[in-house]
Design a protein around this nucleic acid. Structure first.
Lengths: 338, 338
DNA sequence: CTGTTAGCGCCTTCAA
DNA sequence: TTGAAGGCGCTAACAG
């Protein structure tokens, strides 16, 4: 098959040990002449170490697992890109898995990646109020295998992970406050799943802003979505039926759904309805009516998560959770009421 | 560390061999009682085989490498998603690498994935007229290691890969013909790199359609882009300066750039200029003026590439290159001239 | 300075 | 029906 270290050793008349020493740049011992000769023959024979064998003995695979719900979602695609680049820059290779809606699938990937020797796992799974057993099992198995994990939210007290997160509550607050300042009083929301902590946090920010403005909270103005395009499409008629003048979509994808639905109803954004999104994906600038949105920096968060997992792998100190702060980017989709 | 097969063997009083036999479902030998007991203790101890060790001896890692230029690009994100799902369904895990513009980076990933024991590689790298040495080296090293490769274009005769491709020429032809049928006579193009075969093919289709319509080809109407948003932004003023009435962008991303630029010039699509894209990403339907585009099915092509690489790995027959045919999806961005 | 000897965790003949 | 022994390719003590 492939050329092994043994072949190289035989070819240049040294022992396997010496060859290994040289090829791994162990500075110690070994004469310059031997080193040169070994390097030369290894190169000539196009020797490449078998990482499986190396990993088996060193316990280092230079591999990081990354598990996301959906690769084709803008936010995760950007994040994956940043993670992959940072990992590469540090000599790590990325194993990729996506689980869609399935906790079970996520847990399977978790186990699989650990079995494959991943030295760390970046796990982009939103926490819900009551995590499933499958989900807890992920963290449990990682702990047992001493594989560090980075998540994008703070889990419960029994969940051991380094956290790189975002102030979703503040994001919800900023978005709502912006619409309030523009004179809107009936503001609809397209939320994420009702059990999802990051969605609940946005909703809290929304309520707080309303409260500060002295506007009573009306649960009818919340339409429960799932962060997918269709949620936005379905939310628009519902919310317009509630006489909202503005819609805060808990992510950009759902805001795009609102856009799409608006076209089919012959409605004009922002004249007939203001829209604020959440994520600030690059599409927002390209739309005919650019989308006002909360900046949720996928690239920076991905980068930071990669940095953290690498520090953990190296046993370097990692400090407190990293919390990214939201900011608001105002564009044409939100309009000041007369 | 983790529990090994040896631990399980000791715990249930059988030999490592027997345990291995049972855990790998080798039907032969082993009493039902032994089998049951072994299975039970393995589960209790939460035994998970170490894939590195398994791979070292079986030469099977159940891993497939996937190398793309840019993860966050719609087209590749969708493709990656499909590949990941198909691989998972067949018990393969995906290693992900992106190389941006760098042939060297691509080659590094290639070597790295092979060293990590990838059993096959899906390589989404557009071919250029004169492939660099780094690039040829990728295929060479794969051949040497007997690792099958799937590409999305037909390479030269010395490039050994299974091909899952698309009729780019026909795509260029259809897009152009559509605009001609709508009465356009000066049709600008935003192309990809001038050396890139798939861009050249689109341009050939464009020329053929013009020729059939008896319109002389004017090289000034080609603006050389790079498949990125900015190319489209820059192309618009250039092409309008050449008095085109329609623009055929060689991918959707550049078409979006044209959209964005159009807004800043206060131009209306399709009134002032028709636009046709290429890829038909899901955004096209969401735009205020939905984008007419050539359907370039990322999901299907990704799926097929995964199927092919798996067949190759299994040593199953794979037949001729798979060629996807383009179709045109007409939407609001192209307009019939009076 | 260099080679010998043990494994890493697992699978697989071969022998019992 | 089961177990012992060897080896995958490599690193790392430990000797020379």
């Amino acid at each position: 098959m492939r050329v092994t270290i043994k072949d190289v050793a035989r070819a240049c008349g040294f022992s396997v040990t010496t060859v290994s020493l040289v090829l791994n740049n162990k500075e110690c011992r070994v004469s310059a002449a031997a080193r040169a000769k070994i390097l030369k023959t290894a190169a000539e024979m196009n020797y490449k170490p078998n990482h499986l064998a190396v990993g088996l003995v060193t316990k280092k695979t230079h591999t990081i697992g990354m598990i996301v719900p959906d690769i084709s979602n803008f936010h995760f695609a950007e994040m994956i890109k940043a993670i992959e680049q940072e990992c590469r820059a540090n000599g790590y290779i990325v194993l990729l898995g996506s689980y869609g809606e399935s906790d079970e699938q996520a847990a399977e990937y978790f186990a699989e990646f650990i079995a494959k020797g991943a030295e760390g796992i970046i796990f982009a799974k939103p926490f819900v109020k009551n995590p499933s057993r499958m989900e807890l099992q992920c963290y449990e198995s990682a702990r047992a295998a001493k594989v560090p994990v980075v998540t994008f939210e703070q889990g419960g007290p029994d969940i051991h992970s380094q956290v790189v997160t975002f102030d979703y509550r503040e994001g919800g607050y900023l978005a709502t406050k912006h619409l309030l300042e523009y004179g809107h009083r009936r503001i609809g929301c397209v939320t994420g799943g009702s059990e999802m902590l990051s969605s609940i946090a946005r909703a809290e920010g929304y309520r707080q802003a309303l409260e500060e403005a002295g506007i009573p909270f009306d649960p009818e103005l919340l339409y429960e979505g799932d962060f997918g395009l269709n949620s936005g499409i379905q939310a628009l008629p519902y919310l317009l039926g509630k006489n909202v003048t503005a819609i805060f979509a808990f992510n950009d994808m759902m805001a795009l759904g609102v856009y799409k639905a608006a076209r089919s109803y012959n409605l004009n954004i922002p004249r007939d309805c203001s829209v604020v999104g959440f994520d600030d994906s690059f599409m927002n600038e390209i739309l005919e009516i650019p989308l006002t949105s909360i900046v949720h920096p996928a690239t920076e968060m991905g980068l930071e998560s990669a940095r953290q997992i690498i520090r953990l792998i190296r046993g370097e100190p990692v400090g407190d959770p990293v919390v990214f702060r939201p900011s608001l980017r105002v564009r044409g989709s939100s309009r000041r009421l007369a």
